[in-house]
Computed example of a mutant assay.
Amino acid sequence: MFDPIVDIRDVLESFLVDEVLLADWRATLTSAAARLEELARAWSDGDLLNLAGITEQLVAKSMVSDTALARTAADNAARLLEQVRIPGVPRPEDEDWAF
């Protein structure tokens, strides 16, 4: 689940923060959206399905023409990454930081 979300975040943040459009951005977003859609359907996860749909729209429309949608996708990706808990890795709010 991490890889497609991180790929989306990397492409969008490069564009939104640094104003750099990566050469393979369409292929990266297309692949990430397909993987998220697959995971979303397997897990019945509406948040992943929503991010997959927004990502597909960005590929079809072009990020340059809809920066608001790109920002929405980047925010959704960041929120999903914050919600994921990696087993064995403590979070900042945890009392026990032992590995």
Rank of each mutant, 00 (worst) to 15 (best):
L48W: 07
I86S: 08
A77F: 05
T30N: 08
L39K: 13
D47E: 10
D45M: 04
D45I: 02
D66T: 05
F15T: 06
W43Y: 10
L81K: 04
R91V: 12
A34E: 13
K61E: 02
T72F: 06
A77N: 03
R71H: 11
E37A: 13
I86M: 07
A77L: 09
W25G: 05
L39Q: 14
S62F: 04
W25Q: 08
L81A: 05
D18Q: 10
T28L: 04
A52S: 15
E93S: 12
D66M: 10
E95R: 14
P87K: 03
S14H: 09
R79G: 10
L48N: 02
A40E: 05
V84M: 13
G88Y: 04
D3S: 13
R9V: 00
L58R: 07
N50R: 09
E56P: 00
L69C: 07
A33G: 06
I8V: 09
W25E: 01
N76V: 05
V64C: 07
A77I: 00
I5F: 03
E93C: 05
M63V: 08
G88T: 00
A74H: 14
E38H: 15
D47I: 12
A42W: 02
F15L: 09
P92N: 09
T67W: 01
T55H: 01
L12R: 08
D96E: 12
A40F: 01
L16D: 11
T28N: 03
A78N: 10
A77P: 01
L39S: 09
L21I: 11
E19C: 08
P4Q: 12
R71T: 12
A52K: 14
R71D: 13
L12E: 03
L21K: 11
D47S: 15
V20D: 08
A73R: 06
S31L: 07
S31A: 13
K61V: 06
K61M: 09
A27T: 12
A40V: 09
S14F: 08
A23N: 01
D66S: 11
A77S: 09
S31N: 03
A33Y: 02
F15M: 10
I86H: 06
D18L: 07
L29G: 03
E56Y: 10
A34S: 13
R35W: 07
V20Y: 12
D96C: 13
T30F: 00
V89A: 02
G53Q: 07
D10H: 10
P92I: 05
